[in-house]
């Protein structure tokens, strides 16, 4: 459905995306994961016909993004990062306007159907200016869905939503993604893991790695980090912990807690617990810390990173 080949975009002297190549099949939800400024938005803007690439080609739904831009735009639904809404319109007016731009025959009926899909039917005649952040996001999604596109491109669809709204949004996206191609960007690892069939990790305009969330997870859990906290004085704790087999990178924190890592397949936690209790400490907390996105990048771009794809 989406085929990207050597896509490059320069903003003046700065290269925003560098020779990107990837594809997305029909019915697949592909996640674009990367920090801010990695080139996610630029890639999406090129694929939706907003801006041309500096080099490279891409086809969406079988049409070339440069040669047949209008055909591409007819088949793509796009939710930009800054949700583009007209505050002076009601939800219904806005969707009717979008439906008219897309030459949908019965605009009112389609607008109502779409509002129902994003749970905003009861606010059909409210002005968009009165909407909460979550409702605005859903309104933006409705706009992207109004013409029932084959391909949906969503730029940070859950950003700025409260936890309940995030869950709701993810549910809606998964539902939509059953029979459509969805390309979504996020900088939240767990989000990509929950929604996507496949994840592309992008950094500084290049694809660092590409895999299913499960594979990515197992590759990344090469090292696990744990925080340990005891009651009272923690003097000598790090020395005790570092003697346990498999433990490495022990670090005493200023707040008295101790952080350590252990390698894959050698869970050192039971032995650590046993050791410190025997040493007379009162164990309060032992908690695994997820790797942050930055750490994952470091992990993935390190030469001997576990499971790194050679390219």
């Amino acid at each position: 459905m989406i085929q990207v080949n050597g896509l490059t975009k320069d903003y003046g002297a700065r290269r925003a995306i560098d020779n990107l190549t990837f594809d997305a099949e029909q019915g697949e939800i592909v996640g674009f994961l990367g920090p801010n400024g990695a080139g996610k938005t630029t890639t999406m803007r090129i694929l939706t016909g907003y801006m041309p690439p500096s080099d490279g080609t891409a086809t969406v739904a079988g049409y070339d993004i440069m040669e047949e831009s209008l055909e591409v735009r007819r088949r793509v639904g796009y939710l930009p990062e800054t949700v583009p809404l007209y505050n002076d319109m009601t939800a219904l007016e806005y969707l009717k306007f979008m439906a008219e731009l897309r030459h949908i025959p019965d605009t009112e009926e389609r607008a109502y159907e779409t509002l129902e899909g994003v749970n905003l039917t009861e606010r059909a005649n409210s002005y968009i200016s009165t909407f909460s952040k979550g409702m605005r996001q859903r309104m933006g999604l409705a706009q992207a869905l109004i013409h029932r596109p084959e391909v949906l491109i969503l730029d940070e669809p859950t950003i700025g939503l409260d936890p309940a709204q995030v869950v709701e949004m993810r549910k809606v996206i998964r539902e939509i993604g059953k029979d459509r191609t969805v390309l979504l960007s996020t900088h939240i690892l767990s989000e990509a893991q929950q929604i996507c069939d496949r994840v592309l990790i992008i950094n500084k305009g290049k694809i660092v790695t590409e895999d299913t969330p499960e594979n990515l997870q197992s590759r990344l859990v090469g090292a696990q980090r744990v925080i340990l906290r005891v009651r009272g004085d923690s003097d000598g704790l790090s020395g005790k912990v570092s003697k346990v087999k498999g433990v490495r990178a022990v670090e005493s924190k200023p707040d008295g807690s101790v952080e350590f890592e252990f390698g894959a397949g050698e869970d050192a936690r039971p032995q650590v617990a046993k050791t410190i209790i025997q040493a007379g400490y009162e164990l309060l907390e032992m908690r695994a810390v997820g790797l942050s996105l930055e750490e994952i990048f470091l992990e993935l771009t390190r030469d001997n990173a576990p499971g790194k794809k050679s390219s």
Binding site: G49, R73, R74, V83, P84
Partner: peptide, 14 residues
């Protein structure tokens, strides 16, 4: 300014 231009420029209109 409000970002709605992105909406219009990615809609199928010239």
């Amino acid at each position: 300014r409000t970002g709605t231009l992105e909406l219009l420029l990615t809609a199928p209109i010239r």
